[in-house]
Design a protein around this nucleic acid. Structure first.
Length: 199
DNA sequence: CGCTCGATATTCT
DNA sequence: GAATATCGAGCGA
């Protein structure tokens, strides 16, 4: 399967956020036995765009720091950050050439491959709570800050994005879990599906 | 079901 | 000190 090219991420973050819906987030891990590789994957069903100085809710809004440096680097890289003292969130760096920083948060995926392994990482069986939230999907795919900065346009990367299906029913809304810049409707999700985080 | 609230580390004021 | 791109246990209906 092919990966969206780097140029895919070289557009406005809101456009990238919308078009990432329907693509596949893939995590490859080596199992403890016989160093065999396994694929964990899911269809991206919910995203949020985060901008630069124009977006007070973005980690990049106050300039470059050690935490958000991936948002300022090449597009198509994973920006993994730790939040609320417990959880990791997975983003992909993206922006048009006119901006200096930006990223798209992946908020939810629909599990496709490796559900048994996801259940082990999540320590629960219910399929709808496996990956229906940014912290949940990071845990289900065993994603931590060790993967920060990885190139998601490379199919050999342990975390990458593969081209998927075209989704017709994409809706947008305010972003979730933020208090600033709530006027921007930069959350995109597949309407009428049970795998998104919430409405 | 739905709501409230504590956990818990990093960043910002 | 306060806030945070979250989650799930515990409660009441």
């Amino acid at each position: 399967m092919s990966c969206p090219a780097r140029s895919f991420y070289n557009r406005s973050t809101s456009a990238v956020a919308r078009e990432l819906i329907g693509n596949k987030l893939v995590r490859t891990i080596s199992t403890w036995k016989r160093s065999k590789t396994r694929r964990l994957s899911g269809l991206i069903v919910e995203t949020e765009a985060y901008g630069y100085l124009d977006d007070e809710a973005s980690h990049a809004s106050m300039g470059q720091t050690s935490r958000n440096s991936v948002m300022f680097g090449p597009v198509g890289r994973a920006y993994v950050h730790f939040t609320y003292g417990k959880h990791f969130c997975v983003n992909v760096s993206a922006r048009s050439s006119k901006r200096k920083a930006g990223a798209v948060l992946i908020r939810a995926i629909k599990p496709v491959e490796g559900l048994d392994i996801m259940r082990q990482f999540r320590k629960r069986d219910e399929i709808f709570s496996l990956t229906s939230g940014p912290g949940k999907l990071a845990q289900a795919l065993d994603i931590s800050d060790k993967l920060n900065g990885i190139d998601v346009t490379n199919p050999a990367s342990q975390l990458h994005v593969e081209s998927g299906i075209n989704i017709q029913t994409i809706a947008s809304s305010r972003r979730i879990g933020i208090t600033r810049a709530i006027g921007k409707n930069w959350r995109f999700f597949v309407s009428n599906n049970p795998f998104v985080s919430r409405f």
